[in-house]
Design a protein around this nucleic acid. Structure first.
Lengths: 196, 196
DNA sequence: GGTGAAAATTCTGTGGG
DNA sequence: CCCACAGAATTTTCACC
Protein backbone atom coordinates (compact mmCIF):
# COMPACT_ATOMS: atom_id res chain seq x y z
CA UNK A 1 0.00 0.00 0.00
CA UNK A 2 1.35 3.41 -0.96
CA UNK A 3 1.34 6.27 1.46
CA UNK A 4 1.37 10.00 0.76
CA UNK A 5 4.39 11.73 -0.68
CA UNK A 6 5.23 15.40 -0.89
CA UNK A 7 3.63 15.64 -4.31
CA UNK A 8 0.33 14.36 -2.92
CA UNK A 9 0.50 16.84 -0.09
CA UNK A 10 1.23 19.62 -2.55
CA UNK A 11 -1.77 18.69 -4.65
CA UNK A 12 -4.04 18.56 -1.60
CA UNK A 13 -2.76 21.89 -0.40
CA UNK A 14 -3.45 23.54 -3.74
CA UNK A 15 -6.90 22.03 -4.00
CA UNK A 16 -7.74 23.15 -0.48
CA UNK A 17 -7.06 26.69 -1.61
CA UNK A 18 -9.16 26.33 -4.73
CA UNK A 19 -10.80 23.05 -5.59
CA UNK A 20 -11.66 24.20 -9.09
CA UNK A 21 -8.11 25.07 -9.98
CA UNK A 22 -7.27 23.42 -13.31
CA UNK A 23 -5.17 20.28 -13.08
CA UNK A 24 -2.76 21.82 -15.56
CA UNK A 25 -2.05 24.64 -13.07
CA UNK A 26 -1.49 22.15 -10.30
CA UNK A 27 0.69 20.06 -12.58
CA UNK A 28 2.97 22.99 -13.19
CA UNK A 29 3.23 23.79 -9.47
CA UNK A 30 4.17 20.27 -8.42
CA UNK A 31 6.22 19.43 -11.48
CA UNK A 32 4.01 16.81 -13.11
CA UNK A 33 1.79 16.60 -16.17
CA UNK A 34 -1.93 17.20 -15.97
CA UNK A 35 -2.93 13.56 -16.46
CA UNK A 36 -0.57 12.55 -13.66
CA UNK A 37 -2.29 15.00 -11.34
CA UNK A 38 -5.66 13.66 -12.40
CA UNK A 39 -4.49 10.14 -11.57
CA UNK A 40 -3.29 11.20 -8.16
CA UNK A 41 -6.49 13.02 -7.33
CA UNK A 42 -8.41 9.89 -8.28
CA UNK A 43 -6.18 7.86 -6.00
CA UNK A 44 -6.62 10.31 -3.13
CA UNK A 45 -10.36 9.94 -3.50
CA UNK A 46 -10.14 6.16 -3.60
CA UNK A 47 -7.98 6.20 -0.49
CA UNK A 48 -10.72 8.15 1.23
CA UNK A 49 -8.49 11.08 2.13
CA UNK A 50 -10.33 13.39 -0.23
CA UNK A 51 -13.99 12.78 0.52
CA UNK A 52 -15.12 15.26 -2.09
CA UNK A 53 -15.11 18.80 -3.40
CA UNK A 54 -17.23 21.36 -1.69
CA UNK A 55 -17.80 25.03 -0.98
CA UNK A 56 -16.43 27.24 1.72
CA UNK A 57 -19.53 29.25 2.58
CA UNK A 58 -19.78 32.36 4.71
CA UNK A 59 -22.71 31.20 6.78
CA UNK A 60 -22.85 34.43 8.71
CA UNK A 61 -24.47 35.93 5.60
CA UNK A 62 -26.94 33.08 5.40
CA UNK A 63 -28.48 33.12 8.75
CA UNK A 64 -31.84 31.53 9.03
CA UNK A 65 -31.33 32.26 12.71
CA UNK A 66 -28.69 32.71 15.36
CA UNK A 67 -25.40 30.84 15.30
CA UNK A 68 -24.82 29.01 18.55
CA UNK A 69 -22.25 26.73 20.10
CA UNK A 70 -23.71 24.09 22.41
CA UNK A 71 -21.66 22.09 24.88
CA UNK A 72 -23.41 18.90 25.89
CA UNK A 73 -22.22 16.67 28.71
CA UNK A 74 -23.57 13.27 27.83
CA UNK A 75 -24.43 10.52 30.27
CA UNK A 76 -21.69 7.87 30.51
CA UNK A 77 -21.37 5.95 27.27
CA UNK A 78 -24.04 7.96 25.47
CA UNK A 79 -21.87 10.56 23.77
CA UNK A 80 -21.80 8.65 20.50
CA UNK A 81 -25.59 8.41 20.48
CA UNK A 82 -25.91 12.14 21.10
CA UNK A 83 -23.47 12.84 18.31
CA UNK A 84 -25.34 10.63 15.88
CA UNK A 85 -28.63 12.28 16.61
CA UNK A 86 -27.27 15.77 16.12
CA UNK A 87 -25.18 15.05 13.05
CA UNK A 88 -28.37 14.45 11.08
CA UNK A 89 -30.04 17.69 12.12
CA UNK A 90 -30.39 20.22 9.36
CA UNK A 91 -29.38 23.21 11.46
CA UNK A 92 -26.17 21.58 12.69
CA UNK A 93 -22.85 22.39 11.07
CA UNK A 94 -20.14 20.82 13.23
CA UNK A 95 -20.16 18.06 15.79
CA UNK A 96 -17.09 17.34 17.95
CA UNK A 97 -17.14 14.42 20.34
CA UNK A 98 -14.34 14.51 22.88
CA UNK A 99 -12.91 11.66 24.88
CA UNK A 100 -14.42 12.94 28.11
CA UNK A 101 -17.96 12.26 26.95
CA UNK A 102 -18.74 15.76 25.81
CA UNK A 103 -20.32 16.68 22.49
CA UNK A 104 -19.69 20.20 21.19
CA UNK A 105 -22.00 21.33 18.40
CA UNK A 106 -22.28 24.42 16.26
CA UNK A 107 -25.63 25.16 14.67
CA UNK A 108 -27.77 27.96 13.35
CA UNK A 109 -31.16 27.95 15.05
CA UNK A 110 -34.23 30.17 14.55
CA UNK A 111 -33.87 32.26 17.72
CA UNK A 112 -31.57 30.49 20.11
CA UNK A 113 -34.24 27.77 20.38
CA UNK A 114 -31.67 25.17 21.25
CA UNK A 115 -33.97 23.12 23.43
CA UNK A 116 -36.15 22.38 20.40
CA UNK A 117 -33.09 21.21 18.51
CA UNK A 118 -32.11 18.84 21.29
CA UNK A 119 -35.68 17.67 21.78
CA UNK A 120 -36.01 16.72 18.17
CA UNK A 121 -32.69 14.95 17.66
CA UNK A 122 -31.46 13.66 21.01
CA UNK A 123 -32.83 11.36 23.66
CA UNK A 124 -32.78 13.70 26.65
CA UNK A 125 -32.01 10.76 28.93
CA UNK A 126 -28.61 10.70 27.25
CA UNK A 127 -27.90 14.28 28.30
CA UNK A 128 -26.57 15.19 31.70
CA UNK A 129 -26.40 18.94 31.14
CA UNK A 130 -25.73 21.43 28.42
CA UNK A 131 -24.68 25.02 27.93
CA UNK A 132 -25.41 27.37 25.04
CA UNK A 133 -23.13 30.15 23.81
CA UNK A 134 -23.83 32.69 21.08
CA UNK A 135 -21.22 32.57 18.33
CA UNK A 136 -19.80 36.01 17.59
CA UNK A 137 -17.62 34.85 14.71
CA UNK A 138 -15.95 31.73 13.46
CA UNK A 139 -13.12 30.93 11.15
CA UNK A 140 -12.06 27.83 9.34
CA UNK A 141 -8.50 27.29 8.16
CA UNK A 142 -8.36 24.52 5.63
CA UNK A 143 -4.73 23.82 6.28
CA UNK A 144 -2.83 20.60 6.03
CA UNK A 145 0.14 21.12 8.31
CA UNK A 146 2.74 18.40 8.04
CA UNK A 147 0.17 15.68 7.67
CA UNK A 148 1.27 12.09 7.56
CA UNK A 149 -0.88 9.34 6.20
CA UNK A 150 -1.50 7.09 9.16
CA UNK A 151 -4.90 5.42 9.25
CA UNK A 152 -5.98 2.99 11.94
CA UNK A 153 -6.64 -0.69 11.30
CA UNK A 154 -10.40 -1.09 10.96
CA UNK A 155 -10.18 -4.44 12.74
CA UNK A 156 -7.70 -4.02 15.59
CA UNK A 157 -7.12 -0.26 15.84
CA UNK A 158 -3.35 -0.34 15.36
CA UNK A 159 -1.69 2.24 13.17
CA UNK A 160 -1.37 1.09 9.58
CA UNK A 161 2.03 1.51 7.97
CA UNK A 162 3.31 0.95 4.46
CA UNK A 163 3.00 -2.79 4.95
CA UNK A 164 -0.74 -2.51 5.46
CA UNK A 165 -3.62 -3.27 3.16
CA UNK A 166 -6.54 -1.34 1.81
CA UNK A 167 -9.88 -2.81 0.79
CA UNK A 168 -12.86 -1.08 -0.79
CA UNK A 169 -16.27 -2.30 0.44
CA UNK A 170 -19.41 -0.71 -0.97
CA UNK A 171 -17.42 2.30 -2.11
CA UNK A 172 -15.70 3.03 1.24
CA UNK A 173 -12.04 2.42 1.86
CA UNK A 174 -10.97 0.39 4.88
CA UNK A 175 -7.39 0.02 6.09
CA UNK A 176 -5.77 -2.93 7.82
CA UNK A 177 -2.44 -3.47 9.51
CA UNK A 178 -2.15 -7.01 8.12
CA UNK A 179 -3.85 -9.56 5.91
CA UNK A 180 -5.24 -11.42 8.90
CA UNK A 181 -7.12 -8.38 10.18
CA UNK A 182 -8.32 -7.73 6.68
CA UNK A 183 -9.86 -11.15 6.10
CA UNK A 184 -11.40 -11.21 9.55
CA UNK A 185 -13.01 -7.80 8.97
CA UNK A 186 -14.28 -8.77 5.53
CA UNK A 187 -15.85 -11.92 6.99
CA UNK A 188 -17.64 -9.92 9.68
CA UNK A 189 -18.73 -7.35 7.15
CA UNK A 190 -20.18 -9.90 4.79
CA UNK A 191 -22.07 -11.80 7.44
CA UNK A 192 -23.50 -8.55 8.78
CA UNK A 193 -24.58 -7.62 5.31
CA UNK A 194 -26.28 -10.96 4.73
CA UNK A 195 -28.19 -10.54 7.95
CA UNK A 196 -29.52 -7.15 6.89
CA UNK B 1 -29.28 44.96 -4.09
CA UNK B 2 -30.42 41.53 -5.18
CA UNK B 3 -30.94 38.79 -2.64
CA UNK B 4 -30.85 35.03 -3.08
CA UNK B 5 -33.55 33.23 -5.00
CA UNK B 6 -34.38 29.55 -5.20
CA UNK B 7 -32.13 29.16 -8.22
CA UNK B 8 -29.14 30.49 -6.26
CA UNK B 9 -29.91 28.15 -3.40
CA UNK B 10 -30.19 25.26 -5.82
CA UNK B 11 -26.80 26.06 -7.33
CA UNK B 12 -25.18 26.34 -3.90
CA UNK B 13 -26.74 23.08 -2.79
CA UNK B 14 -25.44 21.25 -5.86
CA UNK B 15 -21.96 22.73 -5.50
CA UNK B 16 -21.86 21.79 -1.83
CA UNK B 17 -22.34 18.19 -2.89
CA UNK B 18 -19.67 18.37 -5.56
CA UNK B 19 -17.85 21.61 -6.23
CA UNK B 20 -16.33 20.27 -9.44
CA UNK B 21 -19.64 19.37 -10.98
CA UNK B 22 -19.80 20.86 -14.49
CA UNK B 23 -21.81 24.05 -14.78
CA UNK B 24 -23.67 22.45 -17.66
CA UNK B 25 -24.95 19.74 -15.28
CA UNK B 26 -26.04 22.34 -12.78
CA UNK B 27 -27.65 24.36 -15.53
CA UNK B 28 -29.83 21.41 -16.47
CA UNK B 29 -30.84 20.80 -12.84
CA UNK B 30 -31.90 24.36 -12.15
CA UNK B 31 -33.29 25.09 -15.61
CA UNK B 32 -30.75 27.59 -16.88
CA UNK B 33 -27.96 27.68 -19.45
CA UNK B 34 -24.35 27.05 -18.50
CA UNK B 35 -23.26 30.69 -18.91
CA UNK B 36 -26.08 31.81 -16.64
CA UNK B 37 -24.89 29.42 -13.94
CA UNK B 38 -21.36 30.69 -14.36
CA UNK B 39 -22.57 34.27 -13.95
CA UNK B 40 -24.49 33.39 -10.80
CA UNK B 41 -21.55 31.58 -9.26
CA UNK B 42 -19.41 34.63 -9.95
CA UNK B 43 -22.01 36.80 -8.29
CA UNK B 44 -22.23 34.50 -5.25
CA UNK B 45 -18.48 34.82 -4.89
CA UNK B 46 -18.61 38.59 -5.22
CA UNK B 47 -21.36 38.73 -2.62
CA UNK B 48 -19.05 36.85 -0.28
CA UNK B 49 -21.47 33.98 0.29
CA UNK B 50 -19.24 31.55 -1.55
CA UNK B 51 -15.80 32.18 -0.12
CA UNK B 52 -14.21 29.58 -2.34
CA UNK B 53 -14.02 25.98 -3.48
CA UNK B 54 -12.28 23.52 -1.26
CA UNK B 55 -11.87 19.90 -0.29
CA UNK B 56 -13.75 17.81 2.20
CA UNK B 57 -10.86 15.90 3.76
CA UNK B 58 -11.01 12.90 6.06
CA UNK B 59 -8.51 14.20 8.60
CA UNK B 60 -8.78 11.06 10.70
CA UNK B 61 -6.57 9.45 8.06
CA UNK B 62 -4.09 12.31 8.18
CA UNK B 63 -3.03 12.62 11.71
CA UNK B 64 0.10 14.63 12.26
CA UNK B 65 -0.68 14.41 15.95
CA UNK B 66 -3.57 14.42 18.34
CA UNK B 67 -6.76 16.28 17.55
CA UNK B 68 -7.77 18.49 20.44
CA UNK B 69 -10.50 20.92 21.31
CA UNK B 70 -9.37 23.83 23.48
CA UNK B 71 -11.74 26.09 25.39
CA UNK B 72 -10.11 29.39 26.25
CA UNK B 73 -11.67 31.92 28.57
CA UNK B 74 -10.17 35.21 27.51
CA UNK B 75 -9.66 38.24 29.70
CA UNK B 76 -12.38 40.85 29.23
CA UNK B 77 -12.21 42.38 25.77
CA UNK B 78 -9.31 40.20 24.64
CA UNK B 79 -11.24 37.41 22.95
CA UNK B 80 -10.82 38.91 19.50
CA UNK B 81 -7.06 39.18 20.00
CA UNK B 82 -6.88 35.55 21.11
CA UNK B 83 -8.89 34.51 18.10
CA UNK B 84 -6.67 36.43 15.71
CA UNK B 85 -3.53 34.88 17.11
CA UNK B 86 -4.84 31.37 16.85
CA UNK B 87 -6.46 31.70 13.45
CA UNK B 88 -3.02 32.07 11.89
CA UNK B 89 -1.56 28.99 13.53
CA UNK B 90 -0.84 26.13 11.17
CA UNK B 91 -2.19 23.43 13.46
CA UNK B 92 -5.52 25.18 14.00
CA UNK B 93 -8.57 24.17 12.01
CA UNK B 94 -11.55 25.94 13.57
CA UNK B 95 -11.86 29.00 15.75
CA UNK B 96 -15.20 29.94 17.33
CA UNK B 97 -15.48 33.12 19.33
CA UNK B 98 -18.61 33.31 21.43
CA UNK B 99 -20.30 36.37 22.83
CA UNK B 100 -19.28 35.51 26.39
CA UNK B 101 -15.59 36.06 25.66
CA UNK B 102 -14.70 32.47 25.09
CA UNK B 103 -12.66 31.17 22.17
CA UNK B 104 -13.13 27.52 21.23
CA UNK B 105 -10.45 26.08 18.98
CA UNK B 106 -9.89 22.75 17.28
CA UNK B 107 -6.37 21.86 16.28
CA UNK B 108 -4.10 18.93 15.62
CA UNK B 109 -0.99 19.13 17.78
CA UNK B 110 2.08 16.87 17.96
CA UNK B 111 1.28 15.21 21.29
CA UNK B 112 -1.33 17.26 23.09
CA UNK B 113 1.30 20.00 23.42
CA UNK B 114 -1.34 22.66 23.64
CA UNK B 115 0.66 24.95 25.88
CA UNK B 116 3.26 25.35 23.12
CA UNK B 117 0.52 26.28 20.69
CA UNK B 118 -0.83 28.97 23.01
CA UNK B 119 2.65 30.19 23.87
CA UNK B 120 3.50 30.71 20.23
CA UNK B 121 0.32 32.39 19.05
CA UNK B 122 -1.37 34.05 22.01
CA UNK B 123 -0.38 36.67 24.56
CA UNK B 124 -0.88 34.71 27.75
CA UNK B 125 -1.94 37.88 29.53
CA UNK B 126 -5.06 37.72 27.39
CA UNK B 127 -5.97 34.28 28.72
CA UNK B 128 -7.80 33.77 31.97
CA UNK B 129 -7.92 29.97 31.85
CA UNK B 130 -8.22 27.17 29.35
CA UNK B 131 -9.22 23.56 29.16
CA UNK B 132 -8.10 20.89 26.69
CA UNK B 133 -10.21 17.98 25.51
CA UNK B 134 -9.15 15.14 23.23
CA UNK B 135 -11.32 14.90 20.14
CA UNK B 136 -12.64 11.39 19.61
CA UNK B 137 -14.37 12.20 16.32
CA UNK B 138 -15.81 15.12 14.47
CA UNK B 139 -18.27 15.61 11.68
CA UNK B 140 -19.07 18.41 9.33
CA UNK B 141 -22.43 18.73 7.64
CA UNK B 142 -22.19 20.88 4.56
CA UNK B 143 -25.90 21.52 4.47
CA UNK B 144 -27.75 24.68 3.59
CA UNK B 145 -31.01 24.31 5.45
CA UNK B 146 -33.58 26.93 4.56
CA UNK B 147 -31.01 29.64 4.27
CA UNK B 148 -32.08 33.20 3.74
CA UNK B 149 -29.72 35.88 2.63
CA UNK B 150 -29.73 38.33 5.54
CA UNK B 151 -26.40 40.02 6.20
CA UNK B 152 -25.89 42.62 8.89
CA UNK B 153 -25.10 46.25 8.20
CA UNK B 154 -21.34 46.68 8.63
CA UNK B 155 -21.94 50.13 10.13
CA UNK B 156 -24.94 49.84 12.42
CA UNK B 157 -25.58 46.10 12.76
CA UNK B 158 -29.16 46.13 11.51
CA UNK B 159 -30.34 43.40 9.19
CA UNK B 160 -29.91 44.33 5.55
CA UNK B 161 -32.91 43.80 3.30
CA UNK B 162 -33.46 44.15 -0.43
CA UNK B 163 -33.25 47.94 -0.09
CA UNK B 164 -29.69 47.72 1.20
CA UNK B 165 -26.38 48.35 -0.50
CA UNK B 166 -23.25 46.36 -1.12
CA UNK B 167 -19.77 47.79 -1.52
CA UNK B 168 -16.52 46.02 -2.36
CA UNK B 169 -13.44 47.31 -0.53
CA UNK B 170 -10.09 45.68 -1.18
CA UNK B 171 -11.81 42.60 -2.51
CA UNK B 172 -14.17 42.04 0.43
CA UNK B 173 -17.90 42.65 0.27
CA UNK B 174 -19.55 44.85 2.88
CA UNK B 175 -23.29 45.26 3.31
CA UNK B 176 -25.23 48.29 4.51
CA UNK B 177 -28.84 48.89 5.44
CA UNK B 178 -28.84 52.34 3.81
CA UNK B 179 -26.71 54.79 1.87
CA UNK B 180 -25.97 56.83 4.96
CA UNK B 181 -24.39 53.88 6.77
CA UNK B 182 -22.48 53.03 3.64
CA UNK B 183 -20.86 56.43 3.19
CA UNK B 184 -20.05 56.69 6.88
CA UNK B 185 -18.38 53.28 6.83
CA UNK B 186 -16.42 54.05 3.68
CA UNK B 187 -15.17 57.29 5.24
CA UNK B 188 -14.01 55.44 8.36
CA UNK B 189 -12.41 52.75 6.25
CA UNK B 190 -10.48 55.17 4.12
CA UNK B 191 -9.17 57.24 6.99
CA UNK B 192 -8.09 54.05 8.78
CA UNK B 193 -6.30 52.94 5.66
CA UNK B 194 -4.51 56.23 5.25
CA UNK B 195 -3.32 56.02 8.83
CA UNK B 196 -1.81 52.59 8.25
C1' DG C 1 -30.90 38.53 -16.52
C1' DG C 2 -31.04 35.24 -20.10
C1' DT C 3 -29.77 32.50 -24.46
C1' DG C 4 -27.07 30.32 -28.14
C1' DA C 5 -23.07 29.42 -30.80
C1' DA C 6 -18.09 29.89 -31.42
C1' DA C 7 -13.45 30.11 -29.35
C1' DA C 8 -10.31 28.91 -25.76
C1' DT C 9 -9.29 25.69 -21.99
C1' DT C 10 -9.41 21.69 -19.67
C1' DC C 11 -10.20 16.75 -18.87
C1' DT C 12 -9.68 11.88 -19.93
C1' DG C 13 -8.20 8.00 -22.34
C1' DT C 14 -4.45 5.48 -25.00
C1' DG C 15 0.09 4.08 -26.19
C1' DG C 16 4.80 3.99 -24.86
C1' DG C 17 8.85 4.38 -21.67
C1' DC D 1 4.28 5.78 -12.23
C1' DC D 2 4.84 9.13 -15.54
C1' DC D 3 4.64 11.61 -20.17
C1' DA D 4 2.86 13.11 -24.72
C1' DC D 5 -0.71 13.24 -27.71
C1' DA D 6 -5.42 13.44 -29.35
C1' DG D 7 -10.41 13.38 -28.98
C1' DA D 8 -14.20 14.72 -25.93
C1' DA D 9 -16.11 17.71 -22.78
C1' DT D 10 -16.39 22.08 -20.45
C1' DT D 11 -15.97 26.94 -19.59
C1' DT D 12 -15.94 31.47 -21.33
C1' DT D 13 -16.76 35.16 -24.46
C1' DC D 14 -19.70 37.75 -27.30
C1' DA D 15 -23.61 39.29 -29.96
C1' DC D 16 -28.38 39.63 -29.31
C1' DC D 17 -33.06 39.51 -26.93
Amino acid sequence: MRGLDDTDRGIVRLLLEDARRPFSDIAEEVGLSAPAVSDRVDRLQEMGIVRGFTLDLDRSLLRAGVPVLVEIDAEPGRAAAVRDGLADADAVEHVFRTADGRVTVTATVPQAEVSDLLDAHVDLNDVDSYEVRLVADSEWTPGLGTAEFAPECAECGNTVDEEGERTVLDGDSYYFCCGSCESRFVDHYESLKEGA
